[in-house]
Design a protein around this nucleic acid. Structure first.
Lengths: 229, 229
DNA sequence: TTGTGTTTTTTGTTGCAACAAAATGATGAC
DNA sequence: GTCATCATTTTGTTGCAACAAAAAACACAA
């Protein structure tokens, strides 16, 4: 008789495992921009920082490495990755495919409550940009996107999209001051909200794809300017 | 019996880590259908099977769990997953998006050598089906698909597609005897080869998408029939 | 300054024992 | 038989020491 299938990582359950906690904390820091490309990570340092032994610290670093959020710079050296133009190109294409799908499928499950929540998130993005709190703007931007993707009701898809964000997250953060321009993305976000209100999958997809493309264009530009220095 | 071949992205890597070796072996077995849905995995059992200590065995099981190739059936119980209709639906949509992209981008890098290799792989699929060696047919089918996707030159994409195959792999294998029908997929595969020969990305994409959709349809049907018993 | 060979330190991995918690098996009441 | 309760066994996780290998620091020559 088959056992009842439970899903530990999906159910939003608080895992008591130290390794998972370490992983979540590191993920948060990577997204928040605590680290920059090239920063070196060691299991003993992380273990001490978190006050745990080396096993859970090692678990966290290994997992992040498997997911591409960290990379090997040598047999015994893991660092926050530098994103090459090719990497950025590839990941952008994958984001278009996956986030486009999520956006499309989100429309069917849109409610007026979600629309209100998204409008609130958008105003928080605007506020953050107005006061030059770029890290906050990036954070709310992420919340905005994932609030939409969550509507799709596709958990596998959601985790895959998240690992893509994690791969470029640190570089993104690193570039943001140059990357940010007032009103960036506002138009696309408003279009996405409108599409959701009308339950029009195709137009939500178009808005998100446009947002990703715009972001990619600016990121490439910022990267070029930085390299020139 | 088909030879064991490593994928392109880790072909050159001589990873001496026992945990990686354990992971690769388990991956191989899952794809090969050594396990069926519901089979329970334990670190001590795996450790003994492989003749290593619990640490690398645990590493392998944890990694497979993070990737979705194994799932928790309880706080201390990991099993080979049963794929629900919803899971299958979701993963199929993701496969269409990702493998469609890979197929599209493969066309630009197609060579006559690759076309020949694919024709050879297709004849091996046919041979295996003719002699009812379903596991082999499945194996060559995988080689066929990934030979195309490798052409895209997108390593991130390749590993993501692989994890998707791994998630449904065991169920796929489990159903295969009922799933297999002679000439299944031949038409789509030939269309893909033709598209590659003509460097026509759109038609390669269409062929692969059609193949995925056909497979999904048959898999759903087989699953229904089995549940009915 | 730059390169090169050498020494010292740091690092990830592995195996293993201890522990708490979960899974399993046994028992008994209804 | 069915279900609940208890005892036993099995399980994953954690911390830690040992080890080989890699990285960093150093010394010295050109």
């Amino acid at each position: 008789m088959p056992a009842v299938e439970r899903d530990a990582h999906d159910a939003g359950k608080q895992s008591a495992r130290l390794g998972d906690i370490a992983y979540e904390k590191m993920k948060e820091r990577l997204i928040r921009g605590t680290f920059g490309p090239g920063d070196k990570l060691t299991v003993r340092a992380l273990a001490e920082t978190l006050g745990v032994s080396s096993t859970p610290a090692r678990d966290a670093i290994n997992r992040l490495t498997y997911e591409g959020a960290l990379v090997y710079a040598g047999p015994k050296t893991v660092i926050v990755p530098f994103i090459s133009p090719q990497d950025l190109e590839e990941i952008t294409l994958m984001r278009l495919a996956l986030e486009g799908l999520a956006a499309d499928r989100a429309a069917a499950n849109a409610t007026s409550e979600v629309v209100l929540e998204l409008e609130k998130l958008q105003s928080q993005i605007n506020d953050a940009l107005d006061s030059a709190r770029f890290t906050d703007a990036l954070w709310w931007n992420k919340e905005f996107h994932f609030s939409i993707y969550r509507l799709s009701g596709m958990p596998h898809l959601l985790t895959m999209i998240e690992t893509l964000w994690l791969r470029i997250g640190a570089s993104f953060n690193d570039l943001y001051p140059e990357f940010a321009e007032k009103k960036y993305g506002v138009h696309n976000h408003l279009a996405a909200i409108e599409g959701l209100a009308e339950r029009d999958g195709a137009s939500v997809r178009a808005a998100i794809e446009s947002d990703i493309r715009d972001g990619h264009r600016r990121l490439k530009k910022a990267n070029r300017e930085r390299s020139a220095k």
